[in-house]
Design a protein around this nucleic acid. Structure first.
Lengths: 199, 199
DNA sequence: TTATTTTTTGAACACAAAGTCAAAAAATCT
DNA sequence: AGATTTTTTGACTTTGTGTTCAAAAAATAA
């Protein structure tokens, strides 16, 4: 068992990532200092380097963590045996709810950082691509089953994910609408772009 | 006449702003150095401070410039005497085309910077609010004239602007689709959310 | 308890980038 | 041309922050 020690370390890493992501989202990569991240966890800057090689590494791991959570969510949706309408509705709601509850660490880490190595960048971009593909799959399924019109899948997906991702720019926990309400409305309206308009 | 001198200075300021915005969009506020901005214009860092008080001021002026361009665009649309469908279509297309051609300086300056003073922040936010309101006006008009369904104006506007603003995240001059094509498609699909579905 | 390993600390270093400024250069005016 | 004003320069200062590291503290094992 490689474990008690290792597990404890992993847990601490997670803790750091969560907290770091919150600050990173808020202030951006360059605007966030290692000291700030450390302070929030009542640590000192120095000890961050015990867990992460450097600041870039920290950001990279944040991306991985976030994408993992997103992918888990949509995979569950894909595997369900709802019809495409319900699937897309669920995917949209899931995405919004995640973005709200974990606003801390959501995609707001928009453009992957320039300092990433080739492989790191590729990894993050690949994860995002996977996520997009799941949406495409749902849309395709809907077209094949003739519940959606013959839309341009890529365009529609870009519109949907764009609308969803932009929520982080304005969503506020204490705002007038709950994430639940927002997600309902978004799903309703966005689906209108797709659903075949016949009687 | 306050003029020849002043005018020349103003022109230079514009030149700097345009160039600066390009770099700022590319690398983000914290990621861009004054030296970099200066170098691109074959100037030196020092002389930047002859035109702008400091880096924050530069960013602030960029925001003002961008919003002015956007507002000019949509005001023209509003004043035209097209029907709401055409107006909304135009507004969407205008926004996308602007974002593409002036990708350099578009909204990508997402969240106004933290270092802004109260007044500066308020100013930028107010300009954005004006821009949003114009969209709301078009949507309202469409509802009143019964060409649009009875949608939640704010939600729909958030969806539309979100989808539009997100384009900067992936749009590429050399990509497969031209800005023109993208804007047509976006307008078509987004309008489907609104147009009354009856025969 | 003592020895060993893991984790934290805080000071020190390095370096990049914002901002300053006096003097030089360029432009404009008389 | 010479005088005056505007603009540019580049070296300098200052500050902030990523990173390192040896030593201290804490945790674990014997």
């Amino acid at each position: 068992m490689s474990s008690f020690r290792t597990q404890k370390m992993a847990k601490k890493k997670q803790e750091i990532l969560r907290s770091a992501a919150a600050v990173l989202v808020e202030k951006g990569y360059q605007g966030t200092t290692m000291e700030e991240i450390a302070a929030k966890l009542l640590m000192t800057k120095g000890s961050m380097y015990y867990y992460f090689k450097n600041k870039d590494d920290l950001l990279y791991q944040c991306h991985l963590m976030i994408m993992e959570i997103c992918l888990d969510g949509i995979e569950k949706v894909i595997e369900s045996d709802c019809n495409p309408i319900e699937k897309l509705r669920s995917a949209i709601k899931e995405h919004i709810l995640l973005a709200a509850s974990e606003k801390s660490m959501f995609m707001a880490l928009t453009k992957p950082n320039h300092n990433f190595s080739e492989e790191q960048l590729k990894e993050v971009l690949d994860l995002r691509k996977s996520y997009s593909h799941y949406f495409d799959r749902i849309i395709h399924e809907g077209i094949n089953k003739q519940v959606f019109g013959e839309v341009d899948v890529k365009m529609v997906r870009l519109i949907i994910l764009g609308a969803l991702n932009w929520i982080q720019e304005w969503y506020n926990q204490n705002g007038p609408q709950s994430a639940e309400e927002i997600s309902e409305a978004y799903a309703d309206y966005l689906l209108k772009m797709l659903i075949k308009a016949d009687g």
